[in-house]
Amino acid sequence: MAVDPVTGASSDTPSVSGIYTTQPTRVPKQSLDSEAFMNLLVTQLRNQDPSSPMDTNQMIAQTTQLAMMEKLTNMDSTNQENFALQMRMAAANLVGHTVNYIDKDGATKSGLASSVSYEGSVPVVTVGDQKIPLDSISGVVSPTPAPTV
């Protein structure tokens, strides 16, 4: 009877391979981040041919590309945060104004915006008893000032 030195299983009886009862699964990343680029660079350095090492100019160029990618990623997240803040500010400024919106049936309606909720990714404006997402509001009317006597 032959025994596999890695798994300890004999070739006569089928069994689960290795120490795992189920095969471990690896979820692949859907995007490249700085960690992935750094791993690639380190792997490239480890596996380079000692008789012809990597050109230092190439290494500097790759490091620069990594730094640029990190900065662009940071700028993207900052832009997303700024956009979310702008949406919140725009929604807050609607309170007390008459707004036009498109309801679930596709009809255009209007009403007075009384409050705003920031629970979801898109602010929700309350008009009467309706909860209207900010991106469904199609117009705003300034409140008329009270007449002075």
Rank of each mutant, 00 (worst) to 15 (best):
A2Y: 15
V3S: 01
V6N: 05
G8P: 03
G8F: 01
S11C: 15
P14Y: 08
S15M: 06
V16A: 03
Y20G: 00
R26C: 08
P28Y: 08
Q30D: 07
S31C: 03
S31A: 13
L32P: 04
D33V: 13
M38T: 11
L41C: 13
L45H: 04
L45M: 05
R46Y: 13
S51M: 08
P53S: 11
M54I: 13
D55H: 13
D55R: 14
N57I: 06
Q58T: 05
Q58Y: 10
A61T: 01
Q62P: 00
L66R: 05
L66E: 00
K71L: 12
N74H: 08
M75V: 15
M75R: 07
D76N: 04
S77F: 15
T78C: 11
T78P: 01
N79L: 12
E81A: 13
F83A: 07
F83S: 10
A84K: 12
M89C: 14
M89I: 14
A90S: 05
A90V: 06
A91G: 07
A91Y: 06
L94M: 02
H97M: 01
H97R: 02
T98A: 04
I102C: 04
I102F: 06
D105S: 10
D105F: 13
A107F: 15
T108I: 12
T108N: 08
T108K: 03
K109N: 10
K109D: 04
G111V: 13
L112V: 06
L112R: 12
A113C: 03
A113L: 03
V116M: 04
S117P: 02
Y118I: 03
S121V: 04
V122D: 02
V122P: 03
V124M: 01
V125G: 03
V125T: 02
V125P: 00
T126P: 12
G128Y: 03
K131V: 09
I132L: 01
L134I: 10
L134Y: 14
D135Q: 10
D135K: 11
S138T: 03
V140E: 01
V141F: 15
S142C: 11
S142M: 15
S142L: 12
T144M: 06
T144H: 00
P145S: 07
A146E: 05
P147Y: 12
P147W: 14
T148C: 08
V149M: 15
